[in-house]
């Protein structure tokens, strides 16, 4: 129970920080000053206190969607080992439930986009569902490959397996699965080669287009949910592939060291995302399948390499 509460707090507290860090890093690399690191917190606080304007065409789906997006992201996060190797909800579901929960959130997010009868929202929903659909095989194949090595879809067990010394850092399967999941991460979190999180043009939006009609508390929940989802996927990547430093026992020192290691790893991954976002241009929508097919092929190679290099 305590672990659950602590991890929930960590998810809630850390996720805006990661979003802010990536934004700041991008700005600095582009020679801009950029918003301060805590800007996302300020945004959330503002949104939470503001009154809402709801579209006259919207139904209850529109109002329910933010809660579902928020809660599913949190639930998914509780299944991933963050600071300690034992994830609080690992009994209730592993990698497959995580994928399912994120999909549930996306389902309602897309419905929320369609609900206010705006063409932009419909376009965003359509594109979001398409990209999610073609990213899914690569994601599942990469997760399958890692799960095969661990003999389990339970994320705690997967991390425990990768912690064992027999798993060198240079294991080819490892590297390939990481590469595939990294591309999927970019797609799932709406990062640059696929979607531009900072765009102001409705026609190029994907994620933002679905949020156009949201305001106030509902917008806060949507934004927060998206941040949490991003944190969850990033945590998945760093802890499965670089589990070093994660706390294997519940003592204050181990947890403290785990937290530090976790923060350092997140920072590294954020830097990688920032670098990708600044050095690449956004892809045309119909070039996205090319990128994701590379992710799929790399995940396939990861699978092959489980018996290529036993």
């Amino acid at each position: 129970m305590i672990a659950l509460a602590l991890q929930t707090l960590l998810l809630l507290g850390l996720s805006p920080l990661v979003t802010g860090a990536i934004r700041l890093g991008k700005a600095r690399l582009q020679n801009r000053r950029g918003p301060p690191l805590w800007q996302p917190y300020a945004d959330l606080a503002k949104f939470l206190r503001k009154d809402m304007v709801v579209s006259e065409h919207a139904s209850w789906i529109f109002s329910v969607a933010p809660y579902i997006v928020f809660v599913t992201a949190l639930l998914a996060g509780l299944m991933v080992p963050m600071v300690s190797v034992a994830a609080p909800l690992s009994l209730f579901g592993g990698a497959l439930a995580l994928v399912g929960l994120l999909a549930l959130g996306r389902f309602f997010l897309a419905l929320g986009g369609l609900d206010p009868a705006s063409a932009f929202g419909g376009m965003g929903s359509s594109r979001e569902m398409t990209i999610a659909a073609i990213a899914e095989p690569a994601m599942m194949l990469a997760i399958f490959t890692v799960a095969l090595a661990a003999g389990s879809t339970d994320l705690t067990r997967i991390v425990q397996t990768t912690l064992e010394p027999a798993w060198g850092l240079a294991n080819p399967m490892h590297v390939l699965a990481f590469a595939a999941l990294f591309i999927v991460l970019l797609a799932e979190t709406g990062r640059i080669p696929i979607d531009n999180p900072a765009t102001h043009l409705e026609l190029t939006m994907i994620h933002e287009a679905m949020l156009l009609e949201y305001s106030g508390r509902q917008l806060a929940l949507m934004e927060w949910g998206a941040s949490i989802k991003q944190l969850v996927l990033m945590t998945l990547l760093v802890n499965i592939f670089f589990p070093a430093g994660i706390a294997t026992e519940i003592t204050p020192t181990a947890l403290g060291a785990g937290l530090l290691a976790y923060a350092a790893k997140l920072l590294l991954l954020s830097t990688a995302i920032v670098l990708v976002e600044t050095t690449n241009a956004k892809l045309r929508l119909f070039r996205v399948p090319d990128l994701l097919s590379i992710a799929f092929a790399v995940a396939l190679l990861a699978l092959f390499s489980t018996f290529l290099f036993p």
Partner: peptide
């Protein structure tokens, strides 16, 4: 052996990227 396997696989990935 591990380094060779890793480099070999990276060669293969680069080949895929070349194709793409």
């Amino acid at each position: 052996a591990q380094l060779i396997a890793l480099f070999a696989v990276l060669m293969l990935v680069l080949q895929l990227l070349l194709v793409g």
